[in-house]
């Protein structure tokens, strides 16, 4: 590493701190969730925010997009939403006698998919290609999405009325699933006393631009994951597969997801190397939606499965 890179990397981490602080002004008392969301985006992953209505899911998604200076589109998912409403449509142009493509909201840096589980599986799966391939195929024509591209989706817990649970393959596309939970006492009081969140959100200024985000993402490659960390990660994966406690073991993709999320977490905390603590910090969010106990029906138990995994595997 040379001096210039060193300076720019420390400048970047300083900026990340500013980002976290700025978001924290709007989403009160949820520092951990904010950091996780940010780590997810730095690791180029899509984010699923799940919680009951009214705890600030959408606000968090908006704030994230705004603070990072990304152009964003929002779609409110409903049961009658069609794929074309997301991807765009080709309309016949009489002047040119051709079909013109009118890009949908997916052609943006950030797609805010509100209440994603209210849409039908057909519409949900339209997002699939976009999320995985960073491209969209409409009318036999493939179009590349802008860079960076994230989907930040929110959803209500599955047991609420009028929801279509996301298929497993789609859940796997999300790097993280985070929960916000209720604010604590002090945060709640501040929330009640303070200004309207919508107003604050309107006035918030981007801390960094979308162009600046890409070098930060690149910086992830320089975060060192020592053999000891890889050993630990492999032990975790191995235990999830062979212990018999879980329905399915973690996939190799999940392993990669854990590592890149851990690197992003390390970057946010400005160390140059991944620590076991970094892995443990992001693990519940990264594997929570991928790992289930054998005898578990309740989705709420998912977090405990991740905790269980952490506590079962010694750090080598």
């Amino acid at each position: 590493m040379n001096m210039n890179e060193d300076i720019s990397s420390s400048a970047n981490t300083a900026k990340l701190d500013d980002v976290i602080a700025a978001i924290g002004e709007i989403i009160l008392g949820k520092n951990n969730a904010i950091k996780l969301a940010l780590a997810c985006l730095i690791a180029k992953g899509h984010l699923l925010i799940e919680d009951t209505p009214g705890v600030g899911k959408t606000t968090l998604a908006h704030t994230l997009a705004k603070v990072l200076g990304l152009n964003y589109q929002r779609i409110q998912f409903t049961s009658d939403l069609l794929p074309a409403d997301i991807l765009g449509v080709s309309v016949y142009n009489r002047d040119t006698s051709k079909f013109d493509f009118h890009p949908g909201p997916v052609f943006s840096n950030v797609l805010l998919a509100d209440e994603i589980n209210r849409a039908t599986p057909r519409t949900q799966s339209a997002l699939l290609e976009a999320m995985a391939e960073y491209q969209v195929t409409v009318d036999n024509e493939t179009r590349t999405l802008p860079e960076p591209f994230f989907v930040i989706a929110t959803q209500n817990p599955q047991n609420q009325i009028g929801t279509y649970p996301l298929p497993e393959s789609q859940l796997d596309r999300f790097l993280m699933r985070i929960e916000l939970g209720y604010p604590d006492n002090a945060a709640e009081r501040e929330l009640l006393n303070g200004k309207d969140r919508k107003e604050l959100l309107e006035n918030i200024q981007p801390i960094i631009s979308g162009d600046e985000l890409i070098p930060i993402q690149k910086q992830l490659e320089q975060i060192h994951a020592a053999d000891a960390i890889l050993d630990y990660l492999q032990d975790l994966l191995e235990f999830s597969r062979s212990s018999g406690n879980y329905l399915h073991g973690l996939s190799p993709r999940a392993g990669i997801a854990v590592l890149s999320a851990a690197k992003a977490w390390a970057l946010i905390h400005s160390h140059q190397h991944v620590l076991p603590e970094d892995i443990q910090a992001i693990l519940p969010s990264v594997i929570g939606h991928r790992l289930q106990f054998v005898h578990e029906a309740s989705d709420k138990q998912a977090l405990q499965a991740a905790e269980h995994l952490i506590q079962s595997v010694p750090i080598p």
Binding site: L275, P276, E277, Q280, Q311, S312, V313, I315
Partner: peptide
Amino acid sequence: RKSYEGPVD
């Protein structure tokens, strides 16, 4: 130290 406890923690 708990077996799963990281050094910093």
